[in-house]
Nucleic acid binder design. Sequence first.
RNA 1: GUCCCUGUAGCUCAGUUGGAUAGAGCAGCUGCCUUCUAAGCAGCGGGCCGUGAGUUCGAGUCUCACCAGGGACGCCA
Length: 552
Amino acid sequence: MLKCKVAQLVEQAVIRAQRGGLIPSVALPQITVERPQNAAYGDYATSLPLKLARAARANPLSIAEEIAELIVPIPEIEKIAVAPPGFINFTVNNNWVVQQVESIRSAGEAYGDINLGRGSRVQLEFVSVNPTGPLHVGHGRGAVLGSTLAKVLTAAGYAVEKEYYINDAGTQIDAFYRSLYARYRQALGTPFEMPPDGYHGSYVMELAQEIIAENGDKFLSWSPEEAAWELGKLGLDKMLNLIKADLKLLKVEFDLYFSENSLYEGGQYQRVMSELGERGYTAEKEGAIWFVSSALGEDKDNVLVRTNGTPTYFASDIAYHYNKFSERNFDKVVNIWGADHQGHIARMKAAISALGIDPDRLRIIITQMVTLRRGGTELKVSKRGGDIVTLREVIDEVGTDACRFFFLSRAASSQMDFDLELAKKQSVDNPVYYVQYAHARISSILRFAQERGIEPSYGDVSLLTSQAELALIRKMTQLSEVIEAVADSLEPNYLPYYAQELAADFHGFYEQCRVISPDRELSAARLKLVDAVRIVLAKTLHLMGMTAPERM
RNA sequence: GUCCCUGUAGCUCAGUUGGAUAGAGCAGCUGCCUUCUAAGCAGCGGGCCGUGAGUUCGAGUCUCACCAGGGACGCCA
């Protein structure tokens, strides 16, 4: 990345300036290079002199001049300028810029990829919704976020594994099983009361109907416990398949569905409990076994094993994370959780440090709530309460691409309104279509050129000299910086904004520069540029899990 | 009561980790299609960045207090 190269040049120059006594030898902060907001300042800038000014007790402008003087010239950089109050600005050589068109075309789909991760293994766990009901919009948000992060981290050189943790054990599953059994009985005309803590949504009745259609009434003769268990397993399987189908509609897929139950069957749960005990982090109180998180600075302890002997969700989650770090040896683990899991973060981190694992290896992203609206009225999404608007209905109404783009455009930390009416009404003037339209236009030009026998490969990029052309190429060269920013921050919302900027630069170019003209040389050169834009735009769309349409 | 997230244009939201003149999309208004897609382009209007202090060369960004909205504080997950 040219940006890193510039940072290195600055660092070398500063060190030289300090050794030569031109500026005081104070400790250097992290050398950062950024893109100035105003293009008039050039392509890159550093505010290092401003940061050094205080410690060095010197005028930032003169520091900037001393440093700038010592920066070794490289062919890519055409101009280095000092600007008040103490910036050093870098302007990239236009020859280098136009050459990037060639680089893009030879790199193809790999263009923009970086090696930030150096192959280290990252596990991304997301969605992980209890298979006790259909997905709602909030789940969709985490799903889109996770699947996009997976793509970006892969592009950034990490070895990524996507995982869905199935909570197929515990009290919620039990409540689901008993609800399904009650609905089964009711559907067969043998009245049975719904459990008070049950799932009242109509989808449970539909599941019961399906099971009756496939298995008849044979469970009526079974004992309620056995019948609930068998029915439950059938229902859970169906529910999970529905969830997978919904996720597929959203273009979300996993490498592994990890069963909570397997932690008990595989012995991880037992191993973790004894290890926590050996390390002195468990205690028995009031007939239950507790994790002594207060010993690690938490404000209270948490139950691991209930009085009735069953483990809590927290206990199996510790076993799960032990499995991730100590048995599967992931370098880093990223979990995407809903806002309701906020309180779980601190104790989860405490638990893994209790197991001797560096808690910084675990990063947890909390997605804030999505409130679904239709116009002014808020729609309910609670699973337990009854009927909900499902994710599938939202996708059917709004479309996968628009859904994904919409979710990605908002930072995970912001709660958001998803207004179906608005999403549909705006769908024609949506930024989504603005970006995709650019790709369709490009495809159209390429078709047009092909019909006339104009080949992009013959193009001579040095003919690309107009402002619109250069600005467009400059924008393309930012892709790897965007990938880096997303991979570092785990905030993919840079992506949709970058896509819009790139599309805007293309549309601007399209208005100002006729691609296929009587000038065959220029036509070929511009066609080559257009083909490069196709590559970068499609890559950006694909990182977001969106389609790059050839016609609209 | 404690903890977490949010508060930026009429609306929905960005703001590159503390930098230069705070941006985009909708909505409103004015222009631009005999030529590769007008789902586009050019332009106009719109701001006490919740409030008040603090940190420093410099704050939308960091700290504290307060106000407002949301979430979590369970032997549910």
